[in-house]
Design a protein around this nucleic acid. Structure first.
Lengths: 222, 222
DNA sequence: ACCTGAACACCGTTCAAGT
DNA sequence: ACCTGAACACCGTTCAAGT
């Protein structure tokens, strides 16, 4: 892209933007920096994308189009787990873009690919419409929050400096519960913690809809 | 604050910053605009707060200090619900600051007040340390995500323009599950949806830790 | 001790001009 | 048709100067 003479393809700009975002984070991203990397005048970008926001939408689209979507297995719980895990892997592959995606206030049709799989899985498992919509919101916001926490470093063991800062903030004894949990807080385990959350959600989803009586005749998924 | 001659108290700046943030959102906030509102030179602010980031930390502190913390009732589920509901109300009261808080990458000791209540509640309910820490992460990220979605408007019924945009994005029939759920997606109910998610989490939390072996870590229940 | 104001190195974006 | 470059209205922050 960078060396191509006079040619700034729409897609080339989007890929470069995604790379810059992933390398430097949203705070480190700017249209001017992107243009510098591509070796063009900043305004050349505006010929292909009307604004920074429009370009961001294209980046989000590219991001969501590259979200892994494992094939259905027949077991809805396994499928839900796989789809959430795929989204989490996307976050690991594209940390800056993923973070920007989660914070971004617009939606983008490319999200439909993942949503469709989740909805289809839950509907096939017998969830009534309302519960399926709520469950998907729950699963996505869990996975997105968890992944963003990972990217921020909140699921890595605390270093001595961070541990000391935490201990210092507890001085005075006003927070006995936190103080008693300090070793646990200091030693998270991203894989096990993520699995725990999914298990809680799946267990809860298997229980709660029982009392909902939808028009369509709901069977509790087992 | 604005008219006080020559006096810029630390707290006055923080309150004005919180107000500006809530009124205009993070994108609409700047040190210069804040100074303009306070009727001082932008650099006067730096005399009290070393940087925008430091000021933001003070805003986050003030925000978390004003989080409602309902008294314990003896029923851990009710207490968890109340604490999450309090956090959600904080978001409604301080939309811009809350959003900034969720996106903010630093933590602030004032968060301990809410965390302590949640940890104490769960520990008293018999949760082992590891599960309590995981549960608190789960409950907080659920509530924060939900509240941010509310602030973004994703829990208000879709207007005709938005509905049309969604329908247009489904043209071609590639997303039958979404298409079938369109009316449900278009008519969320913030109160009921929030309660549903809490019910799922509480039901799941009541199930999952039972099989966990506290000392060694988590084993997946079947 | 506290506030000011010029200055620096940035932003996103508009617009007229170049090829 | 596509790119450029000056310009505008912003940023956060440094630093020397004022009171």
């Amino acid at each position: 892209m960078s060396g191509m003479r006079g040619t700034l393809s729409r897609q080339g700009i989007v890929e470069a933007a995604m790379g810059l975002l992933d390398r430097e984070g949203e705070a480190g991203f700017s249209m001017r920096k992107l243009a510098r990397e591509l070796g063009v005048d900043p305004m050349a970008l505006y010929h292909r994308h009307a604004s920074r926001r429009a370009l961001m939408q294209e980046v989000m689209k590219a991001l969501m189009l590259s979200c892994p979507l494992p094939d259905p297995s027949g077991d809805w719980r396994a499928d839900v787990r796989g789809l959430c895990q795929g989204l989490r892997e996307l976050a690991h592959r594209h940390p800056g873009s993923f973070r920007a995606y989660v914070v971004f206030e617009d939606w983008v049709p490319a999200e439909h690919l993942l949503h469709e799989e989740l909805y289809a899985t839950l509907l096939a498992a017998g969830f009534p419409a309302r519960d399926a919509v709520r469950a998907v919101r729950l699963l996505l916001s869990y996975t997105e929050s968890f992944a963003v926490d990972e990217l921020t470093g909140w699921l890595e063991p605390l270093g001595p400096r961070e541990l000391h800062a935490l201990e210092a903030s507890l001085a005075g004894g006003a927070f006995p519960a936190i103080a008693g949990l300090i070793e646990t807080i200091a030693s998270p385990d991203a894989e096990a913690d993520f699995a725990f959350g999914l298990d809680v959600l799946l267990a809860g989803l298997g229980q709660v809809p029982r009392d909902a009586v939808p028009a369509t005749g709901y069977q509790q998924p087992k």
